[in-house]
Amino acid sequence: PNVKLVTSDNEEFVVDFRIAKMSVTVSRLMEAMNMSETDDASLLSNSIPLPNVTKAVMARVIEWCEKHKNDEPKEEKENDKRGRTTHVVSDWDKEFLKNDEFGRLCQLMGAANYLEIKGLFNDISQTIANMIHGKKSDEIAEMFNIHCDLTEAEKKEIRKKTAWCED
């Protein structure tokens, strides 16, 4: 059975019921609209509006879901020796997210958050955390495209507050 999803720019995506179910938000909406896997009429006559997701982002989300539809629900986490927690990102996911520039990753993350797709959300947050890791503040600001709204004195004060004592 298929489910119709409608994005903010009125694009209709027809996806498998199982894929739609991967999003907690969509799954809840389907429940609220009395749509069930066995009731084809309810699936045909209704479509799920997703006003926070655009066509381009939705296509990416569905691509990810197609790949992961048979995955067991799992939460893989590792602690490295400095106490930094990391999610395990599979090779396919790394490849999937590799070519996205930062702005698009953020859009995708926003969508994963709104649709409540935990696996995709973890993958993206880990990817962004890896991009931040080991960089200096001005490099990160450039990557995020952030205009600094702190004065030099405030920066100095923050640096002083967070300094390691051996520095």
Partner: peptide, 8 residues
């Protein structure tokens, strides 16, 4: 530490 001195 690096992130904290980027923006408010």
């Amino acid at each position: 530490d690096e992130l904290s001195c980027i923006s408010q």
